[in-house]
Design a protein around this nucleic acid. Structure first.
Length: 575
RNA sequence: GGGCCUGUAGCUCAAUUGGUUAGAGCAGAGCGCUCAUAACGCUUUGGUUGGGGGUUCGAGUCCCUCCGGGCCUACCA
């Protein structure tokens, strides 16, 4: 039994996430967490909402609510959706929590003590009308390079040239449209991560088997141009973790908060502390996951994220934790494996929140059960390339895999048994060569499934699982208990007894992918023993003769052509 | 501009890192079964591995070049 710490990239607070966000981090993380628990490992699975930053403030303003209230409400909405998708977080925290405030400030002070914080004087655009400093991309104007009139202050979307906001012609606030802008002096704290470049480089080199996507992005940032750049970790905002606090090792930072990308990953740790608080446990309960000097030395830490998050998780966050341990007194647990994902597109384009294009988490659950989405998304996870959601593919995959291959198998076995033997596991008969063959095939298939699940090969795992389901249909076809029954009812009884056990076997091993359906199957066959089938033969002997069960309702209703057409129109975003 | 990823059957993807005849699922065709959600099983059609050149006994895999798709490029998060 191992101890496995799993974190999913934090979903941002300013709205409901779409399926692309879900499949890029939370869903595969949940798959892995469920699998690890099922194998008997001790798991801590952490996620949280990422609540700070300009977009949160703007979204709150748009909703006409104080930002704290807005975030609290959106957090509960996202919590509900996470529950709806059966994301099995041990804790779903908030980056705005008191725990994160304290820890973020503590780590910043440690970095200062390490000489890794630098105060930098800057000039930044202030909007009088909006009463706030504007991040570069919230300033719009005419591109000095190509004349595009809606260029953003960081980059022109038209000619892709990198810009400085002061280069823009006729600059205006992207928030209010106001042109009443001025350049003000301000100062910010910078994380001197350039000093850790070689350390980070060696650390990444020492990691085994990370996805190319992960290492290539990290290497790019480490070695591109002048190498890893220092990074501002504070912002002139109201909502966030205050930079000025009791005992802060710097002065004159009033009214500033830490940049969301500094405090967000720290929330992984803080959320674990929130978990301990919620459980009524003391600090040692979370420290044994995060402090190598307090019991975390045997923890394996795995992170899941979309590719846009990789730089922060391979560089900034490790730099923060390494820096905080400058005197060897705070050995924080660093990540052991980073599983990163490409993007999911929607029917020939990108998901778009602003255009209402694509399927969002709340909409998805309103039209179909979570398992449908979990299965399709995981079996098509964008591991090597961006992948694409189409309704046609979704319908075909779900109907074939879930309804026909698995659902129908459950149906045909339980209904046959009911009609010939009643709703009870039949007794008598003996297993023969074909049954031994099945056990052998299942053992081989299960071994492969476990290997790819251990390796977090998501699509491959779905394929292997499906292949295991198929073995059941093949067996049934050959054993043909409906024929056997006519001449040798005892043998048919043995075959069906095995088949009913096979259904439990499938529920247990499929649970990480489709937890609701698995639970329904277990309920129907009246079994609550979810123990992993380490030995296939004995796992298929678990439900004894005489054990009562009920025939479950149709596990997966098929998606009809009419439904597909309706949804296709509904979510096209061209209303 | 720079960097990285990618292009394999109509569709979605494999191919143990250079090694026999490039494999699966879906879709299509044929047969079988009749327990089951018109489900299941078996058989089968289908590829000049984006184009071209090169290295090698041998290339989907390595090199060059051209074409196409995507991502990142540090103040959205």
């Amino acid at each position: 039994m191992a101890r496995i710490l799993i974190t999913s990239a934090l979903p941002y607070i300013n709205g409901i996430k779409h399926l692309g966000n879900l499949v890029g981090s939370q869903l595969p993380a949940d798959l892995y967490a469920r699998y690890c628990r099922a194998r008997g490992h001790e798991v801590m699975f952490i996620c949280a909402t990422d609540e700070h930053g300009t977009p949160a403030e703007l979204a709150a303003a748009k909703a006409g609510k104080p930002v704290a209230q807005y975030c609290a409400e959106m957090h509960s909405v996202q919590t509900e959706l996470a529950n709806g998708f059966k994301l099995s977080f041990d804790h779903y925290g908030r980056s705005s929590s008191a725990r994160n405030h304290t820890l973020t400030q503590h780590l910043a002070a440690r970095l200062a003590a390490a000489g890794l914080i630098e105060e930098v004087a800057e000039k930044q655009v202030y909007s009088n009308a909006d009463g706030r400093f504007l991040p570069d991309r919230y300033i719009e104007g005419t591109c000095p390079n190509c004349g595009y009139e809606r260029a953003r202050g960081d980059q022109c979307e038209n000619c892709t040239k990198q810009l400085d906001p002061i280069d823009l012609i006729n600059p205006r606030s992207a928030i209010s449209g106001s042109t009443d802008l001025e350049v003000r002096d301000t100062k910010h704290l910078f994380l001197r991560q350039s000093k850790l470049r070689d350390t980070l480089d060696q650390w990444i080199d020492s990691q085994q088997g990370w996805p190319v996507l992960t290492t290539s992005i990290a290497k790019k940032w480490l070695h591109d141009g002048d190498g890893l750049q220092d990074r501002g970790i504070t912002r002139d905002l109201d909502w966030g973790v205050p930079v000025q606090f009791d005992g802060a090792p710097w002065q004159g930072m009033d009214g500033k908060v830490f940049y969301v990308w500094f405090d967000a990953p720290i929330e992984y740790i803080a959320a674990t502390a929130e978990w301990a608080d919620a459980q009524g446990l003391d600090d040692s309960a979370w420290q044994r996951w995060w402090r190598e000097d307090m019991g975390a030395d045997d923890v394996r830490y795995v992170q899941f994220m979309g590719k846009d998050n990789v730089p922060f998780h391979t560089l900034s966050f490790p730099a923060t934790l390494m820096g905080a341990n400058f005197d060897k007194s705070e050995p924080w647990k660093l990540v052991d494996y980073i599983k990163s994902f490409n993007y999911l597109n929607y029917d020939g384009g990108q998901f778009s929140t602003s255009l209402g294009r694509g399927v969002f988490m709340d909409q998805a659950l309103s039209i179909l059960p979570a398992d449908y989405w979990r299965w399709w998304l995981l079996s098509h996870a964008p591991e090597n390339n961006d992948s694409e959601f189409t309704w046609e593919n979704f319908q075909a995959s779900v109907n074939k895999d879930l309804a026909d291959v698995l659902g129908n198998l459950v149906s045909r076995v339980t209904k046959f048994c009911r009609s010939k033997f009643g709703e009870v596991v039949p007794e008598g008969g003996a297993l023969g060569a074909r049954e031994a063959q099945l056990v052998d095939d299942l053992a081989k298939g299960l071994d492969s499934y476990q290997k790819v699940m251990d390796a977090m090969m998501v699509r491959r795992s779905a394929q292997d699982l499906r292949a295991l389901w198929v073995l059941g249909n093949e067996y049934l076809q050959e054993a043909a208990p409906w024929s056997t029954f006519k001449t040798d009812p005892e043998s048919a009884a043995a075959q069906i007894r095995l088949s009913l056990n096979l259904i439990r076997f499938y529920a247990v091993i499929s649970q990480p992918f489709i937890p609701d359906a698995a639970a329904r199957v277990m309920e129907a066959i009246n079994c609550d023993d979810w123990s992993w089938p380490d030995d296939v033969a004995s796992a298929l002997n678990m439900l004894p003769a005489g054990h009562a069960f009920t025939v479950p309702e149709v596990l997966f209703a098929k998606i009809t052509d009419d439904q597909r057409a309706e949804w296709e129109a509904q979510f096209s975003g061209q209303t």
